[in-house]
Design a protein around this nucleic acid. Structure first.
Lengths: 338, 338
DNA sequence: TCAAAAGTGTTATCCTTACACCCATGT
DNA sequence: ACATGGGTGTAAGGATAACACTTTTGA
């Protein structure tokens, strides 16, 4: 039996040297006809309780937002600009970063009419959630903004509350054809009665709820919709990020960007469950991961988890060269008959 | 046996009423520090010979490009702006449209230093390749720009020529570590010796070739790299489009956006083969499509294809409500031993 | 009659899923 | 002793891939 014992899953860093520069705004405000570009990051970390996002407190009591800032002439690339804003606003070092989408509807995002506001959203993954770099930044569980997306403990209460209103929305279509279209769209995004739920379709569900007036955007009175509100289009960016991550874990070994260097099977499983918002079948998950060659044993063992000590694993990066799509199948347990 | 007989796979339209407005450019040129946004579309159609892209002849003998134009204040959404430019420059009506990626490296795209040039690429699919709307637009097989991506008839000659130079590039890394990294990246994108070729990684392969100096971008003397050159970053956008399409056919029934209302199994198979750039196993492809419930028989039959008449099929859109990821598995035939 | 394409049957294999069960530790 | 989580064996069922074969037309 391997003797070495590890203690912590996600070691915490001490909070010394926090430092945060306030960006100067000497720049002239953009003139009508111009274009502004905002770069925003959904920075995700895994914690035992579930996935978290780094959020900045809203200024003057407004809604919170994601770390973000305007594209500047000094930024060599878009990603470099994003990284520089994140470095200024948080203490996080980013690992994996990927572009999600560019939003630019004239009437949904812009605050200044006549100025086109583009918003480029990014997904960033970090291994360890360090304490936020300033008093204005905090890690928050991502289901705070999407309570209906967490099905780990069965159908969430938020979704129970939404379902009747969604059906009412579908039935309030102007024509019979419109009603059928709405019902079909509802079934395709939310499934029917807990069946047919496809975890990746986060953005489609959010857009449907938005169109049906069941979630509020920034500016609306609080308490009108399910879930918390974010500044500008940041909640939509977060929905895109969650959907992308949920889709991608299945064909790329991207979860490991969220894991510490060594981890147990159950920690890996719980991370995936948190991301996907569903429970998985333990013995089969274990075997799928093993058999795909995604991990290897470190030789160490941890007693932190209670029960029998667990072997520690690390990611086998060689798998990238061996397999075409080394992702994690998600072995859902059979649904107990309703 | 069904009696009705259809004649053509892709009926051609007559070329009357072609019309194309030259866009005015009254607008002041952008000042330093400003941002310009170009919207570009890779418009794809399927033809019996393979997938085609609508290309515009380069002005003044320059490299050809994709239909594109600047984002304007009148455009309500980004996609609306794209559609309006495409409508002006071509006669195509677009079907499915999706955003691909926003490029914005300061030093790769911009022609005017001091002005940030953003380039938002889109993928658009059309059912029928109509004759181009103007003398400047033409349908071109997409492998003209990516000859190494077409493995339907075995390893293409272009890839044979590239392989030695790729290995030389990998071996010319500065340190042993750099050489290993290059070899790994090469294996992950191109596979090794025809084995491990993953058709979706089109952009990764293009970027590697670009980094290795084996494809030329606009401005370089002709004949320096493999494949034709396109204006600005349009070839990169096309690489993104091909990769996205190749990936997406596997989990969304998106090929049917390229098919006419009725088609045969072989036509569907050849379309998929053209997109993916590989050959498929006929009997198994047929069964996979059937069994997924993706198509239904129209009751008609065509004799156009030679040999025994083939039943005509249509897409069953209900499948979207029935299955989670109704895509086309790609049953590759066993590789003949080399 | 032959070539060409359409279409069917069948088998071996692998992967996934589900169920049942044993193991090692702390309290 | 028992609760908790770690970990293994195995068999049923489904999906896939390969091969062999029949059918229907036009030249």
């Amino acid at each position: 039996m391997p003797p070495v014992v590890m203690r912590q899953w996600f070691p915490r860093y001490d909070r010394s040297m926090s430092e945060s520069r306030v960006p100067e705004s000497d720049e002239a405000p953009p003139a009508p006809g111009q274009v502004t570009v905002e770069l925003s990051a959904a920075i995700v970390a895994a914690t035992p309780a579930g996935p978290s996002v780094l959020a900045l407190r809203g200024e003057g009591g407004g809604a919170p937002g994601l770390p973000s800032g305007p594209l500047e002439a000094t930024h060599r690339t878009l990603e470099a600009g994003l990284r520089s804003w994140v470095a200024e606003q948080t203490r996080q070092e980013l690992g994996h970063v990927e572009q999600l989408y560019t939003f630019g509807d004239r009437d949904r995002t812009a605050c200044d009419p006549g100025v086109r506001a583009l918003s480029i959203g990014y997904l960033a993954l970090v291994r360890e959630a360090r304490p936020a770099g300033s008093a204005d930044a905090a890690w928050e569980g991502w289901y705070r903004w999407f309570p209906w997306e967490d099905r780990r403990d069965g159908q969430p209460a938020a979704l129970d509350r939404l379902e009747a209103r969604l059906v009412a929305w579908a039935d309030s279509g102007a024509t019979a054809g419109a009603r059928q279209l709405r019902r079909d769209r509802l079934a395709a995004t939310f499934g029917t009665g807990g069946d047919g739920w496809i975890e990746d379709r986060v953005l489609e569900r959010y857009e449907l709820l938005y169109g049906a007036g069941l979630v509020s955007e920034a500016g609306a009175p609080p308490g009108v919709g399910e879930g918390s509100v974010m500044r500008a289009d940041h909640r939509r960016i977060l929905a895109t990020a969650i959907g992308r991550l949920r889709g991608k874990i299945k064909y790329r070994p991207i979860v490991f960007e969220l894991m510490p260097p060594a981890f147990t099977f159950l920690q890996l499983q719980q991370t995936v469950e948190g991301l996907a918002g569903i429970r998985l079948h333990k013995p089969n998950f274990r075997r799928l991961v093993e058999q795909q060659g995604l991990v290897e044993e470190t030789g160490e063992v941890t007693t932190e988890t209670g029960g029998r000590p667990a072997r520690l694993l690390r990611f086998r990066s060689e798998v990238l060269l061996e397999r075409p799509a080394p992702g994690l199948r998600l072995p859902r347990p059979r649904q107990p008959a309703a």
